[in-house]
Each structure stands twice: as structure tokens, then as C-alpha cells.
Nucleic acid binder design. Structure first.
Lengths: 245, 245
DNA sequence: AAGGATTTGTACGTATGTATT
DNA sequence: TAATACATACGTACAAATCCT
């Protein structure tokens, strides 16, 4: 054999060789990738090995494969990005900061018909409404409003949210951390109103990030959360590599 | 054989069976997944088939695999989300809207040492600075400031950005759409200042989403873009399913 | 500390099915 | 219809990592 050293596994080498050709632009979008038999010959390996490498690229969205037609470099799509929206408590503690949560209010009531986000959550059924303040290094950091459907998560009615913020409680709950099947985030900029400004100790009208999160289990909505981050102290960041599909 | 109809392929059936057990909570985080030989026996198939299904789950981050130790359900991580940050022009046209771009200014200059985002882009080397307005349905929609390193992308010096917004130009350029290897987004809320407010036709101080984007090719930074979206007209949305890893 | 057992990782070669041209 | 190229699956083999004795 001619190979003295194998820097990685064979299928991974094929994978990265092709990926590099695509990312460098040598193989442009729409270009045809050599057929599996050609790659077999080129690398002197079995077809299963080639197939594993190329199928992985297809699963990652870098190429498209069609029977009989062949494999082609996919069109790039810049739109899809990964944004980290961290758990505030975990993030703070990891960075050596002090974290606190102050429960501002907690009440049970029925969903109001005139507010669409509540109606979707529970058509007239009981809701748990929570409001609280995330505190980082003894300064207010974010304001959270949460609605939990008691029809779906009756256990929440008995939980003590003074010690643990509801987000962490939901995450740590052995069953509940897995009940959701779909989620949606909406990110907006808002001028903060007087009341919330007072709680966050910033001046009225300051631009803040509002992150809304909804979760579902199947067709049933479980929670609605709206978190308003102090605009001067928080931004979302994402680092990523080009994706295709 | 007992199977009359095969709803999908075998490895996909194994894949979804396991995924359902995890997502339903029947197999909690940390739980051990049956070893491959057990799954072989259970499904009456070869190890390669089991391996393909379980390896795909590992690649997707739902489970972790370790030689000799076994395969385990991964801890859920809520932090990682997918946010669509669409190309404004493509998005607008797809929805049947009218799109326009107005170039406000364009000049070449050297990077200023006192502005860190410029210095990282080109240490004293020439930059192309562009400012422009995205217009949707004849109303201003977003304000864009862009810096392009002419050392990395000399072709940009000759391009006509009156017809095509620079973002689309970069995307459509056959070579340039593939040169970047890394990118970063930063999303903040800002109170818009007077000058920009006038261009966007909103009142000064309105909360707007500011999306900063940096792209690199290896160690070299290629572009820095800051887009300020009219706060009342734009929000980011993401829909996703639980992820693990 | 050494060695055997277990479990996943990679790869081979073969076979057959399926979608598309 | 026939040929092509990918899709799935089988059974085998050996390697690598790790756990247990």
C-alpha cells in the first residue's frame, strides 16, 4: 500500500476532501460530484465507504442526491443560522457570576378570550401566571412573564418558584424537560414601558430585546414566555459556518 | 415473514422508534440504549443496519456513544436554537412584495485604528464602505452599513451597487458566495438616533433590532455589516424541535 | 500493571431494490 | 424498456476504546 499514515478514517477523509472542494468554490453550486464508482476507484475503497461519506454530506445539506441523476453541490442558503439563547442562570454561574431570581407575582386564572396568546394556550382553562426578575451580580437583568397551561402541566401548580426560576424548574423536572415537541422563538426590539423600566432600573423608553418563546406538545401549547432583557446588558450572539440545503 | 407492509426503511424505523422513546420521556437523559446486538435481535437485522440508525441519532446529538461503555440518551440542551435571518430581497419577493435598494453612500478609505471592528477587518488596508436603504413596498425597511475588505475582495471595488444590494451581490457572485468559512451574528436592541430615524421615517428613539454580521475566510475578516431594522416592522422568528448534545 | 471481555468504529464485498433518464 | 446511479441491507472482519478482573 502507498499510504504510510492515515490522518483520519477513510470515509472522513473522503468527506473532508469533498467538503473542502465545495467550500473553496472549486466545485460551485450545481456542480456534479463524481459518481460513487469513480470515488471508489479514486480512493481504492468499497462503495459503502464512499456512500457513507457522501450521504453524510447530503444529511448536512451540503449536497443533494438523486437516484440515477447523481449528486450535486447544493445552493448555499445564508438564511439559516444558529443562535445561542442561553439559560440565564447556567450562563451566569458558569462565568463565575452571582445569580438570583425574584418572584414578583404568581396567580392562577382562566385564559382570557381577548388575548390570543392565552387563548391558544388554554381555551378558557386554568393557567398559571408567573412574573419574576432575573438578577445577575445583584443587578436586575431580565424580566420574565410566563404562562403555563395547568391542563397540560398540573404539577406546576404545586411548585415553589421562589427558590428556582420557572425556566430552570421546567428544565430540571425529569418528565417535563422532555414533553415539548415544538417551540417557537420571536425576537423583537421594544421601548420599555415605565413599570418594567422601574423593575429593571433603567430609564423608560430604553430599547430592550424581547424574546418570546412558545412550546407545544403536539397540538397542545404548554407555555408562553416573554423575557425582556435589559438592553444595555444583553445581546444575542451566534457563530457559525456556512450551511447549505 | 410477519411484516406485510414496510411503512419505511428498516434503519429509519429503528431510528424513529428510538427517537420516539427519547422524546416521549420513556428513555430519560442518561438512560442506556440497548447494545447493537440486542437491537439486531429485536429487529432481526444486521449490525450495520442498527449501527446506521443509532449513529445517525448520535450525529443529530440525541444520544452519545462510547466504545465499550455503550450508548446513552444525551442531556437536553435548550440553548441552541435556529433563527432564520432571511435575505430581505428574497423574502420580500417571495411574499409578493416590492423590493428596492437605495445606495446612500459609497467610498473607499483605509481602516481607522480607533475603531476595533475596522481594524480587525483590515489593519490600515483599504476598505469599501457602503451605506444603503432596503425598501419594501415603497417604505424604508432597514438601514445597512457595510465594510468590505478590498484586500480580500478586490472585485467589490468595481461592482455597481445601485442595481443590486451588496448582500445579494455577494451572494450571487459565483466565487464570493463561497469564500467565507466563519460568520458571526450579534443581535441587539438599540434606540435609533436622529439621522437614521429620518431615513427610516420613524421617530427618534424608537427601539430597533440591530443585526451585526461578520464573516471570515480563515483568519482574515472579509466583511462587517450592521443592519438596523425598523423596529415596528420586523422581528426574528424561529420554529424548532428539541435538540440534544 | 496486565490482560481479557465488551461495545462501538470502520471497512470490505456482495446483493437486490428503486427512481430517473 | 434498458441502463444508470443511488438506497438499503446482509454478513464478516478487525481495530480501538474502555471496563473489569
Amino acid at each position: 500500500m502507498s499510504r504510510q499514515r492515515r490522518p483520519q478514517t477513510l470515509y472522513r477523509r473522503i468527506h473532508t476532501d469533498i467538503e473542502n472542494k465545495i467550500r473553496s468554490g472549486e466545485w460551485a453550486a450545481g456542480a456534479r460530484i463524481p459518481v460513487e464508482h469513480a470515488l471508489m476507484a479514486q480512493y481504492g475503497c468499497a462503495r459503502a465507504t464512499v456512500n457513507k461519506a457522501v450521504s453524510a454530506l447530503a444529511a448536512a445539506g451540503l449536497i443533494e442526491r438523486h437516484r440515477r441523476a447523481g449528486s450535486f453541490v447544493a445552493q448555499p442558503r445564508i438564511q439559516s443560522e444558529v443562535v445561542e439563547i442561553p439559560d440565564i442562570q447556567a450562563q451566569t454561574v458558569r462565568q463565575g457570576g452571582q445569580y438570583g431570581f425574584r418572584l414578583l407575582s404568581r396567580r392562577m386564572r382562566n385564559a382570557a378570550a381577548r388575548r390570543p396568546e392565552e387563548l391558544a394556550l388554554a381555551r378558557g382553562e386554568p393557567l398559571l401566571e408567573l412574573r419574576g426578575l432575573h438578577i445577575v451580580n445583584e443587578r436586575p437583568f431580565a424580566l420574565e412573564e410566563r404562562l403555563i397551561s395547568l391542563a397540560v402541566v398540573p404539577e406546576a401548580g404545586a411548585a415553589d418558584f421562589h427558590a428556582l426560576p420557572p425556566g430552570s424548574w421546567l428544565l430540571q423536572h425529569p418528565i417535563l424537560s422532555k414533553v415539548w415537541t415544538d417551540a417557537e422563538h420571536r425576537i423583537n426590539a421594544v421601548n420599555i414601558e415605565a413599570l418594567a423600566a422601574g423593575l429593571l432600573e433603567i430609564s423608560q423608553g430604553t430599547a430592550c430585546l424581547a424574546v418570546e418563546r412558545r412550546t407545544w406538545r403536539g397540538e397542545e401549547q404548554i407555555t408562553y414566555v416573554r423575557t425582556i432583557f435589559r438592553g444595555d446588558a444583553y445581546g444575542l450572539t451566534a457563530r457559525f459556518k456556512p450551511d447549505r440545503g
